[in-house]
Structures are given as C-alpha cells and as structure tokens.
Write a protein that binds this DNA or RNA. Sequence first.
DNA 1: AGATATACATATAAGTCTTATGTATATTTT
DNA 2: AAAATATACATAAGACTTATATGTATATCT
Lengths: 112, 112
Amino acid sequence: MYSSELIKGTLKTIILKLLSENDKMYGYEITQKVKELTDGKIQLTEGALYPTLHALEADGILTTKTVNVGNRIRKYYTITKTGKKMAKEKVSEFREFMNTMVFLLDLKLNIG
Amino acid sequence: MYSSELIKGTLKTIILKLLSENDKMYGYEITQKVKELTDGKIQLTEGALYPTLHALEADGILTTKTVNVGNRIRKYYTITKTGKKMAKEKVSEFREFMNTMVFLLDLKLNIG
DNA sequence: AGATATACATATAAGTCTTATGTATATTTT
DNA sequence: AAAATATACATAAGACTTATATGTATATCT
C-alpha cells in the first residue's frame, strides 16, 4: 500500500479511466477492481470514493441507475460524453506530469 | 502548469531529491530550480514551500544555516544523513507508484 | 520613479482524504 | 446456530496539505 499523500489527486483520474473502459460500474466494484489491478497497492476508501462519485454526477460527468440486486441496492455509474473527454484530458495530463517527474527525479522506470 | 491536485503530495519528494544532489540550497533557489528544470510546469508556491521546509527541519531531516548576503538574509538548507535515507525511500516509492499507475491507466511514456 | 526580482515568512481559507460511524443483507467459517 | 466476513450504500468530523493573500525589505532593471 502506497502512502496516502502519493495517491492524492489521482482518484478522479482513476475513476474516469475505469468508467471509460467499462459501460457501467458501481462503487464497490470500482474499489475491488482497483485493488485487483494494483495487487492491493491502491485501495480506495469509501469516505473518499462516494463523495467524489456524487460530485462527478452533480457535474454531469457521470449518470447513475439504481438497481435492486436481491434485497440490496446497487448504484451503477456510467460516464457521459463530456466525461469521456474529461477522462482523456486527465489521463493525458497525468502522463505529461509523470514525464516531468521522471526527468526531475531522474528515474528509470520498468516499462517499454 | 499542471493542475494543483496532481502535484499534491510530491512536494517533499522533490525537495528531498534536490537537496540530496546539492550540498545546500535556500528556499527561493529551490523554487527557481524546479521551475527551470520543469520548464515552468511545476512552480512551488511559498505558502507550501516554507511550512514544509520548517517541518522537515523540525523533524531533523534538514539543518539550516542563515547567511547575510548584502543586507538580505538567506537561509540555506542542508539534508542530514537521515534525510538522505528518507529521500531515497520517497523517490523509490514514487517510482513504484508510477509503475502501478502506468499499468492502471495503460500509459505509454516517452522514456527509454 | 516604477516595476520586477530577490528572499524571507505567516495566516486564512479551500480542498481532499482519513477515520470513524451507521445501516442492512449475504455468505462463509467455526 | 453463532460469529465473522463480504457486499453495498452513505455521511460526519477532523486532519492534512496547498493556494491565495498579505507583509516586510533590499536590489536591480527600465
């Protein structure tokens, strides 16, 4: 698990990227997917996730659809057209930021 | 200039890395060096820089030496042995974090 | 003379995230 | 059968970090 200060600021980018690649996802699913894809190194907390999802919905970046699964509620989030554009911008900005940091910190990454 | 939320959490890492490579630096010098090295894409604000430098000093990560240059004060910061160790850890953690994010966001970076 | 650069610093507010708490059902383990 | 864990939503209070604004003062450039 990475220190929280490192992950700060990447939450929106991660959410938007995931929802760009999946038609619809619900909150809990997002936390599990991120945990799985990062081998548990990034674990989103509910206290951070839900307010962010709500804010993105309020801004028209995401839309929701509530479904009953058994007796439980599940709230699916889908990214809008505007949201997809935003996702691309966010990911792109992060890529440039990393290039800058790689240079600044003189890093050698294990990627091709 | 990158959005502030992106840069959040990298301030300490940047400061420690710079001071690991330079015997001594003063606050203003750090802001200028970062601005220069990143082509103005990362500009440290004083409101963030000085409190952080003071905190690092209080924690024994940095030591200071105040010098008079003409009629002006200049406060040099030097990294301690403990600080150098911390710098290595921070940079290393950031490297691993970036590898994780590259995978998670499916990025292609422009580095060899 | 005025603007910009150098050089320190702090205070208030804004923003984001953590921790803790709450509700409720489903499944697995003991 | 009871207890623990997983699923699934959500919010509130506090902590932490950073931005913005402000303050002081000298040096240099136009």
